[in-house]
Amino acid sequence: MTHNADTEALVHEFDRYRPVLFGLAYRMLGSAMDAEDILQEAFLRWQQSPRHTVQSPRAFLMTIVTRLCLDALRAARTRREHYVGPWLPEPLVSTGTPDPTARAEQEETLSFAFLLLLERLTPLERAVFILHEVFGYSYDEIAGLIGSNGPHCRQLGHRARQRLSTERPRFRADPAQAEQAARAFARACAAGDLQGLLAIFAHDIALWTDGGGKARAARNIIYGADRVARFFVGIMRKAGRMMTFERACVNGQPGLLVWIDGRLDRVYAFDFDARGRIQAVYGVLNPDKLCGITRG
């Protein structure tokens, strides 16, 4: 086989596993840009490894990506301690409606609510939990990926489930209700309609805004329907005429892109309660997290 043909075969084999590798890296890091960096490094190591040493390409690549993510997570912990205001994941955006055939549990593990819960775990707990709960690996298989043993991985998984069990949502909002609430939010915001917002907000709603010190945003989480609704009415009074809302699928759920004079200003993701009311709003304004999103 020629060098070019060998390289092409390596690229083809790597691309077979790219979706699952990206899914792992994104859930581990909460950043699409960082996940892509991890995949680039993984491909270089894949390219440099002698073929006779690779018995299972998938296992080999999952091991590399998992360990690279663990290193990246440990480094990120220090940076996030000094992050300005609430930290939110980098949004995964596609225009249009969520895929109705997608597995509900897979979409749930991409949601902002779920990714924020994962922030409570240590890097090893996070890796074990994701690999077991999302990708279906046994604890013995995970042990091989992270360089540990089965009983220790089982203990890490148990500890992770205990930490998350009290706050992990026990229900999933009806997709049609969630879609309707997101559209109603856009209409009420555009109109500066305080009562319209209150009608679709859960009473204990929380608003997270991530500007990262690079965009104007609330430095603390805002709680309560009245306070959150008045916050949005205030925004629209200042910049409402310049804002346009675009429907989008954000991390597998109904969301919105907000444009000002053709520039993406922010992305809104939502969490919904069992009645389809908005339980949380996640506003990503940090321009570093928006640069890869284009208009649909």
Rank of each mutant, 00 (worst) to 15 (best):
L131H: 13
A178P: 04
G147V: 11
C153I: 09
A191F: 01
L197W: 05
R159A: 04
R219T: 10
C189R: 01
A218R: 06
D204N: 09
C153T: 08
F201C: 02
E125H: 12
G144D: 03
A215C: 11
V228S: 00
W208S: 04
D226Q: 13
D204W: 01
A181E: 03
G211A: 04
R159Q: 04
R219A: 14
A218Q: 09
Q162Y: 10
P175K: 11
T122S: 11
Q180N: 09
A176Y: 09
R168V: 15
G213A: 02
K214N: 11
F129Q: 05
E167N: 07
N149F: 08
H203A: 11
R172L: 13
R183N: 01
L207N: 00
A184P: 02
N220E: 13
S148A: 08
F129S: 12
V134T: 15
C153W: 02
A188N: 04
R216W: 11
A176D: 14
Q195V: 02
N220S: 15
P175Q: 13
H158M: 05
L145M: 12
A176E: 13
Q177K: 09
G212E: 10
H152P: 08
K214H: 08
A215H: 10
T122M: 05
F135N: 15
R159S: 06
S165Q: 06
H203M: 03
A127H: 05
A206S: 09
I221S: 06
R216D: 15
K214G: 01
R154N: 13
R163K: 15
